[in-house]
Structure formats: structure tokens, C-alpha cells
Simulated assay, not measured.
Amino acid sequence: MNCVFVQLRCRPGKAYEVADRVYEREIASELYSTSGDYDLLMKLYIPSDEDVGKYINDHILDIEGISRSLTTLTFKAF
């Protein structure tokens, strides 16, 4: 499994709706509301045989209300 963090910027007034859609899909191990440039932060575990970009595109970025995302790949846990 590949651990990645995805930050989502939502259209004004849509952060809670986007969070609900992410939660319903049961793909995030953790999901937080955040301050700053992005509205939501999620931790995902993507199967090793999946392409990370395609997985995120197919499972997250089709949610209505998302205007931008930022993905951070992880390499080693300390």
C-alpha cells in the first residue's frame, strides 16, 4: 500500500458537502478540515498495483465541489 496525503480546495460553501462525499466512499483513512490554502486534508492508502494519479483522479477528483488538489507522496515512516 502507498500512503499519500491529498489536500483539497473546495468551492466556497462546499467543504462539508465534499467531506461527506469522501466519507461515503470509504477511501480515506483520515479526513480533516484545515485552515490555509486548502480546506480538507485526507490520508489515503492506495494499493501498490494502482497508479496513484489515476486512483486519485478516478476516486476523488470527480466529486462535485472540488476546485483543486495537492497530493503529497510518502516514502518511509520513521
Rank of each mutant, 00 (worst) to 15 (best):
S33L: 15
N57C: 07
T71L: 04
Y45F: 14
R11I: 13
H59E: 13
V52A: 00
M1S: 11
E17Q: 13
V22T: 10
F75R: 02
Y23G: 03
C3V: 15
E50Y: 11
T71E: 00
D39R: 06
V18M: 05
V18G: 01
D51E: 13
I56Q: 00
L40Y: 06
F75S: 05
T74E: 09
D37A: 10
S48R: 02
S33K: 10
S33M: 14
F75I: 12
Y38G: 01
V18Y: 05
A77N: 10
V52N: 01
E24T: 07
K43T: 14
S67F: 07
V52Y: 03
T72K: 01
I63S: 02
L41V: 13
Y55M: 00
Y45L: 07
Y38Q: 00
L70S: 13
D20C: 08
F5A: 06
A15N: 04
E17N: 12
R68A: 13
Y38V: 02
L31G: 09
I46Q: 01
N2L: 03
Y55A: 00
I63P: 08
S69C: 10
E26A: 12
Q7T: 11
E30A: 07
Y32S: 04
D51F: 09
G13N: 08
L31R: 02
D39W: 13
E50P: 03
Y16W: 06
T34V: 15
K14V: 09
S33E: 04
L44Q: 03
R21K: 12
L31S: 07
D51L: 06
L70E: 11
F75G: 04
Y55N: 00
E50D: 07
V52M: 06
I60S: 02
D58W: 06
R11M: 13
H59M: 09
S29A: 07
E24K: 07
D39I: 15
S29M: 13
V22N: 00
F5Y: 15
D51V: 12
Q7M: 15
A28L: 02
D51K: 05
K43S: 03
N57T: 11
F78H: 06
Y38S: 02
G53F: 10
I27F: 08
D37W: 14
R9N: 05
Q7H: 10
R68N: 12
A77R: 14
P12M: 04
C3A: 12
A15E: 07
P47S: 02
G36W: 11
C3H: 11
L41W: 08
R21Y: 08
F5E: 01
Y45T: 09
V18D: 00
M42T: 10
Y55I: 02
P47Y: 04
C10E: 00
L70T: 06
L70P: 04
L61E: 11
D49G: 05
